[in-house]
Amino acid sequence: MAARELRAPRRLRSSNRIRRMLANHLATTAAVASTILVMAPLVAIFFYLLYKGASSLNLAFFTRPPAPVGETGGGMGNAILGSAILLGIASALGVPIGIAAGIYVAEFGRGGRLANTIRFTADVLNGVPSIVMGVSVYALIVLPQKHFSAFSGGVALGIMMIPTITRTTEEMLLMVPLSVREAALGLGVPRWRSVLSITLRTASPGVITGCMLAFARVAGETAPLLFTAFGNQFWSTSINQPIAALPLQIFVYATSPYDDWHRLAWAGSLVLILLIVVSVGLVRYVAGRGVLRGAS
């Protein structure tokens, strides 16, 4: 911005100055235009979700299972319940392991070769395509058991949560000043106690942020569920049975030829997006208020 005030030296030829100013304006315009162009799809997606989804939302959507082909009505109640169960299993698996691994990298192995390798592996694991995760969990759990199950879907999602949680936990713990740890240890507090109730406690807003982000990310995952949770047209709460999930149901309905199902797919997407946006927004609110604002 300071460039506005600075003038090119008078000696320079004015054509050169014009060229430079033109380039400057061109670059500014390009940057603004690309920002607008990037915002456009987002606005379009939200507009269509509200426009097409909101009209199909009613009580039946939340309370009824899908209607058979040809009948109108029906909802995604079983898929919402299924998603909740799957995400419950995933969080039960992913959150403790992810936080513990983050604690190791930040507190125990800090700067060491093992810790760095773990951090790097977590980053790489984060980039593994979700479909590959689905295939390996299929080979690991579904194939030996010989049936699709909610459990295998939850495991696939849980594994996907681990690297995100590990990395954010680590970063948040690193922001806790060393003097806090020293104070705790200096008082004779055992290491485990100091880590759990001093360091982790101090960093908890950030750690919770990480968990919510991981949760929001896997909440919309479809690919790992295709051949683990598989989907189900009926109510099911058993973790040993195939189970419906919201993203899975959206995929099936979106690619179907029926108008009624398309409407349900839009409504399902709206619910899914609201779930994710609310959790991400909540995270930003908590993190923005919390002590570790700078990091999140």
Binding site: V38, P41, L42, I45, L49, A216, R217, A219, G220, E221, T222, A223, P247, I250, F251, A254, S269, L272, I273, I276, V277, V280
Partner: peptide
């Protein structure tokens, strides 16, 4: 934009 699920 990053938070929108792939299926949506």
């Amino acid at each position: 934009l990053a938070a929108i699920p792939s299926v949506v």
